[in-house]
Design a protein around this nucleic acid. Structure first.
Lengths: 244, 244
DNA sequence: CTCTCCTGTCTGGTATGCAAGATTTACATA
DNA sequence: TATGTAAATCTTGCATACCAGACAGGAGAG
C-alpha cells in the first residue's frame, strides 16, 4: 500500500508553497528565504522551516550559503544545459513508451492548450511561463507514473528558474506551437513522432536561452544603473516593451 | 550497523552511509533507523540525524511513521512496478540519446562486467546484488549528465530494496548476460538497439520478481523461527563471514 | 579624503529540553 | 490460563537557547 502520505503537516505547506511560488513564476531565482521570516509568516518555529529547506535543497530548488542564508536556486549555464538534456531523455522516453492515449488524457491536453491560447491572447507573461512548464507535467501525467511525474515536476521547477535567468525574450507562440505539434502527434497515435518532436521542442526552447553570456552577478546592477527606477521594475519594463 | 561510522565531519555523511548501506544490500528494507542510535553512532545530536532522514525521505529511501520511527522504505508492489517503468523510460531514453561511446566509458563498462563475472564465480550474492544495480549507474555515467545520474542512483537504491523484498530467486547469470548484450550493442555503436535491449532487460528482471505474493509482515518472524540461532545473529554472521 | 579596523547585529548551525503519541510490559482479575 | 487495563518506557515532534560566522557601519589613524 502506498500509505506514505501521513497527512497535512505545516512543513509540507512551507515546501509546497515555495514550489508553487516557483512553478507560478512568482518567486524569482536568487530570492532570499530567511528562516526567521518564513517562521513568523507560517507561524512555526525555525526548526520546521529548516526541515522544509533541507527537503527543497535535495530537490535542487533552493541552496544554502553557509552562515549567509537560504536562496532560491540560480542554476548555472552548465546546470541549465544538463537539466534540458535530462528532460529530453526522460520526456522523449516517456512519449515513446506510450501505447495509447486515453480520452481523459486527450481532453486534459486539449484543455491545457486552450489555456495556453487564452494566456497568449491576454498577454499574461507570468501565467504563460507557468503554463509552458505545466504542459510538460501534463505529459508526464499521461503515463500515470508517479515517479516520473515527481521527477519531471522538479525538473520543471528548475526549468522555470532557468527561464527567468537566461530567457531574454520569450517566444511564447513558438513554444505553444511546439506543444500543439506534440499533441497532434499523440492524437494520431504517432508516439515515436511525438517523442522526436519533444526533443526538437526542448532543443528549440534551450536555444532560445542566452546561455553564452556569463550570468554576471553585476548584470542586475548594471541594468539597474542604466535605468532611473528601482531594479525590480526594470524587468517589468522589459516585459511590457516585449509585449508591443 | 556498527561498521557504518566513518568518523568524518559530515552532516550528510549519515545520508551517504545509509544510501551506501542500501546500495551494497547491507541494510534491508524495513530496518528501523532510530534517531538516538544513529546520533550516538555518528557522534552528533539528533538534529543532524533528523535532517539526514528528512533528505532521505524526499528521495523515497526512508519513510517515517509518526511517533513510531524511521524505517528503510519497503516499496509496495505497485511502487515497484512504477519504479521499473520509470527506469525503462529513463534508461532507454538515455541510451537512445547517445551518439558515441568514449574509450573511457567502454573501459569502465568492461571493467564492470569483469567484476560481475568475478562475483558470479565467487557466488557472492550480496556483492552481486550491488553490482547488478551498479551497472545501471555506470550506464548513466556514460551520459555525463549529473541530473540523470542522481535520479538513476536513487532509483537504483529503490530497486535494490525491491529486489530484497520480492526477488525469490536471483538469476544472476541471466542479468549478467543482459548487461553483456547491452554493452555489446554499445560497443557496436548501435544505441537504438541498446535502448531496446535495456527495456527488455528491465522487463525480464521485473518479471523475475514475485509481486503477486503479498509481503507478509510475519514472514521474517516465520523464517527466523525455522532457524536454530537468533534472527539478529544470522545477519551478523552473514556479514562477518563475507568480510573474511 | 581614504583606508583600516573594530564592533554591533544579523544570519544560519547545533544541541538540548520538554511534550505527546505509540508500544510494550506488568499485573490484577475473571 | 486468558484477558483487560494501566503504567512504564520507548519513540518522534517541535520549540527554544545558545554559539559562531558574516556583514555593515562607524570611528579613528594615516
Amino acid at each position: 500500500m502506498q500509505d506514505l502520505h501521513t497527512g497535512q503537516t505545516a512543513q509540507d505547506d512551507i515546501e509546497r508553497s515555495i514550489v508553487s511560488g516557483i512553478l507560478s513564476a512568482r518567486i524569482k531565482p536568487g530570492t532570499r528565504l530567511s528562516e526567521n521570516q518564513l517562521a513568523t509568516v507560517f507561524g512555526v518555529s525555525r526548526t520546521r522551516v529548516r526541515e522544509a529547506m533541507m527537503r527543497l535543497e535535495t530537490r535542487a530548488i533552493v541552496h544554502v550559503s553557509p552562515r549567509r542564508g537560504w536562496f532560491v536556486a540560480e542554476p548555472s549555464a552548465g546546470e541549465a544545459m544538463t537539466v534540458y538534456a535530462a528532460r529530453r531523455v526522460i520526456e522523449s522516453g516517456l512519449l515513446r513508451s506510450m501505447s495509447e492515449l486515453t480520452n481523459a488524457g486527450r481532453q486534459k491536453l486539449h484543455a491545457h492548450l486552450a489555456e495556453e491560447k487564452e494566456a497568449i491572447a491576454a498577454g499574461d507573461k507570468q501565467r504563460l511561463t507557468c503554463l509552458m512548464g505545466d504542459f510538460h507535467i501534463r505529459l508526464a501525467e499521461l503515463s500515470g507514473n508517479d515517479v516520473l511525474i515527481d521527477i519531471l515536476r522538479d525538473l520543471t521547477a528548475r526549468t522555470i528558474l532557468i527561464s527567468l535567468l537566461y530567457q531574454s525574450d520569450f517566444h511564447a507562440m513558438q513554444s505553444h506551437l511546439g506543444h500543439c505539434e506534440i499533441v497532434d502527434a499523440l492524437d494520431a497515435g504517432e508516439f515515436t513522432k511525438a517523442a522526436e518532436l519533444s526533443i526538437a521542442h526542448l532543443e528549440e526552447v534551450e536555444e532560445g536561452l542566452d546561455l553564452t553570456s556569463r550570468r554576471d552577478p553585476l548584470s542586475d546592477l548594471r541594468t539597474s544603473l542604466s535605468l532611473p527606477p528601482a531594479a525590480a521594475q526594470s524587468k517589468e519594463a522589459a516585459v511590457s516593451s516585449q509585449k508591443k
